[in-house]
Amino acid sequence: MGKVLIELKNLTKRYGDMTAVDHINLTIRENEFVTLLGPSGCGKTTTLRMIGGFEEPDEGEIYFEGKLLNNVPPYKRNINTVFQRYALFTHLNVFENVAFGLRIKKVPKHEIEQRVKRMLKMVDLEGFEKRYVDSLSGGQQQRVAIARALVNEPKVLLLDEPLGALDLKLRKEMQIELLDMQRRVGITFIYVTHDQEEALTMSDTVVVMNKGVIQQVGTPQDIYNEPINRFVADFIGESNIIEATMPEDFKVAFDGVVLDCVDKGFEPNEPVDIVIRPEDIRIVTNPDEGMIKGTVTSVVFKGVHYEMLIQSDYREYMVHRTMMFPVGSVVGMNIQPADIQVMKRGEAIE
């Protein structure tokens, strides 16, 4: 783990009656790829903009290398941003867009030349120096925006939904390229997205936000396998969320069955929510061999697997399997103790 680079303490931003960011605390380290993830309006972009200096916090502090950053204007922060839809300067060509920051810092001409060339090479845009940005494709504009920010050698790069305007295939390619770039330049990336798959693919650390509050901070594996509440479980991937109780440690009870699990430490009979991922439910053809009985009501082929809906006496389960069970067949479902994630009851942290 690297040195602490940025610290957010009780950071709060209000717009009128609405609290966009509500007393959040977060530590970001050197070379970390951090993703702020959440639905639109969850406060992720506002948080990013406060770090960039485009919004003033109403309460709380931002520390950068231990120094208070709150009153430093954006043009004096050693932080650069890749904006939504890039915000390139359309009156300048590619070279001048990338050179913009260096010219302001009065870097010597030949050095500007070198650094811009090197940066354009890195983002695979050699030979595009004289082109106007309007004549470039979305993916190319994206690279110019990244080059324009990275050429200034910031300690932190902020990226605000940088791939939002690209089509799916290009998105996937750029995800890999961005990750590769981050490893090569070795700086901290703070990345904002509402796309959970993107967040899981790219990040060292995922910060899930909702209604201005941080719900969970963790590695992609933690977030996916051990969501802390209903909101996170629902937002990250597809899941079956079930209200249950814990009669004792390592047992959950719901829908008239009691299953083994690996969680403990709850009060006896405490109401909880449990999450079961669709791919963790196994199906057996003999219903009596299953822990839960149900009837297949719908089958959709998804390429790698079949997505099936199975109706039990109490609820509908979503199940992902590579083997198909026809609609109408009565089957049994089995779940391993480790695949049951037990969470405290409640929608989300408010």
Partner: peptide, 13 residues
């Protein structure tokens, strides 16, 4: 783009 001015500030202008 509403962020164009911010992009300039971000780059040190």
């Amino acid at each position: 783009n509403k962020h164009t001015a911010e992009a300039a500030l971000d780059l040190g202008a």
